[in-house]
């Protein structure tokens, strides 16, 4: 393994782990459900994305052939994270979970079956 790849991998792993940490810190630290939703959706997803890319680079270099199946998990996480966040927020609004910000008025009829 060349020093350049070593440094690239170390940076990716460190960034990834830091973002994962900050995402969960947000989950533990922020003061209402809706603000807590932001940390895991964005920071944690990018953190795990960085770690998965580091893993793809690591195995591609070690086995001297492209190892791209980590990309599959990365894509999957980036597609599903906003969907779960949307559903969680919708459920929280439906249950009238307390919020720091004034909540929007409830929808006229039953919860809509939204696009995702």
């Amino acid at each position: 393994m060349t020093p350049l790849i070593d440094i690239l991998l170390s940076l990716l792993i460190l960034t990834g782990a830091t973002f994962t940490f900050i995402g969960s810190l947000g989950l533990a630290r922020l003061r209402d459900f809706y603000t807590r939703l932001h940390g895991p959706t964005k920071a944690t997803t990018l953190g795990v994305g960085c770690l998965l890319i580091a893993s793809a680079v690591f195995f591609s270099v070690r086995d001297e052939g492209a190892s791209l199946h980590e990309v599959l998990v990365t894509l999957f996480l980036f597609i599903t994270a906003p969907v779960s966040a949307h559903l969680l927020a919708k459920a929280a609004l439906h249950l009238k979970v307390p919020s720091l910000a004034p909540t929007p008025p409830p929808d006229s009829d039953k919860p809509s079956n939204s696009a995702d």
Binding site: I13, T20, F33, R36, T44, L51, S55, L77, L88, P98
Partner: peptide
Amino acid sequence: DAPDRILALDTLYVNTIALLVLLGI
């Protein structure tokens, strides 16, 4: 509230993936 716990569980899944990837490397 229940949504908080589900969000925490979802984050735990993602954290577990991070740990597994690190272990793999």
